[in-house]
Simulated scan of single mutants.
Amino acid sequence: MAEQAQYEELVRQFSAFGAVKREMGRILPSDCPSGSAAVLTLLSRHGDMRMSKLAELLAVDMSVTSRHVAHVAERGWIERSPDPADKRSRILRLTPAGEDRVREMSRLTTELLAERLSDWTDEEVAQLTGLMTRLRASFDDCRSAHRPPAPPDRPEHPTRTPAITQ
C-alpha cells in the first residue's frame, strides 16, 4: 500500500488536473458546455436510456440532469420519447445531429490530446489510459458497494480538507 505522502501528492495532482479539464472544456463548441457534452457522450457510449439511468451515470442530481437534457433537446441533439414500459418515463436517444456533435467533440478532444501528448510514447499513453481506467473502476466499485455503518466513535462523514495545488 502507498504511503501517506504519496496519497497527499496524488491529491495535489488531482487538483492540478482541473487545468487540463478546463482546457479541454474550452475547445468544446460554445453551444455545448461540458454538462451537455457529457450527456451526449454517455448516450453515444451506452445507447438509449431513461433519465434516471443518465443521472446515475453522470453522478448528479435529477434536477441537474434535467437541465442538461433540456439544453441538448432544445438544440435537436436528442429526442425524448415515452417509455413503452412506463408512460410516465422518457427514453432519451441521440438524433443524427447529436451523433454529428459527438463526432465533432471527439475530433476536437482527440486533436488536443494528440498535440499535448506528442512527446509521449504510445506505451506511455497506453499506460496512462490503463491507470485512469483502473482508477475510475475503483471509484465505481466504491459507489456501488454497500458500506457498513461507521462505528459509533468515528463520524459518519469525516472532516475534509480542501486540496491545495502547488
Rank of each mutant, 00 (worst) to 15 (best):
V64S: 09
V102N: 06
Q127C: 08
R45G: 05
R88W: 08
D31V: 02
A59D: 01
L113N: 13
A59Y: 01
E74W: 01
E23W: 03
E115A: 05
T95A: 11
A150D: 11
R107A: 15
E56D: 05
G47A: 05
Q6K: 10
E74I: 03
L58Y: 06
G98H: 14
R88L: 14
A5I: 14
A19Y: 13
R26D: 15
E115G: 02
L54F: 08
S144Y: 03
S63C: 00
K87S: 09
P84D: 14
M1Y: 05
V69K: 05
A5F: 03
G130E: 04
H68P: 12
L58C: 02
D100M: 04
R80Y: 06
Q13D: 06
L135S: 00
R80G: 04
S15T: 01
D61Q: 09
S30M: 01
R143V: 04
S89P: 00
T110I: 11
E124N: 07
T41N: 09
D153W: 15
Q166G: 10
P149A: 07
R45P: 02
H71C: 05
L10G: 02
T165Y: 10
E23Y: 07
L58M: 07
H146A: 10
G35W: 13
T161I: 12
S44Y: 14
M1K: 05
L10Q: 11
A85H: 12
T109E: 13
V69W: 11
M132Y: 04
D31H: 12
K87P: 02
F139P: 00
M49I: 09
R160W: 15
V72M: 01
D100G: 10
E115R: 14
M62F: 13
E79D: 11
E56I: 00
S118R: 06
S34T: 11
R26F: 07
P162K: 03
R103T: 14
A5P: 04
Q13S: 08
E156D: 05
H157E: 02
V64I: 10
S63P: 00
T110K: 15
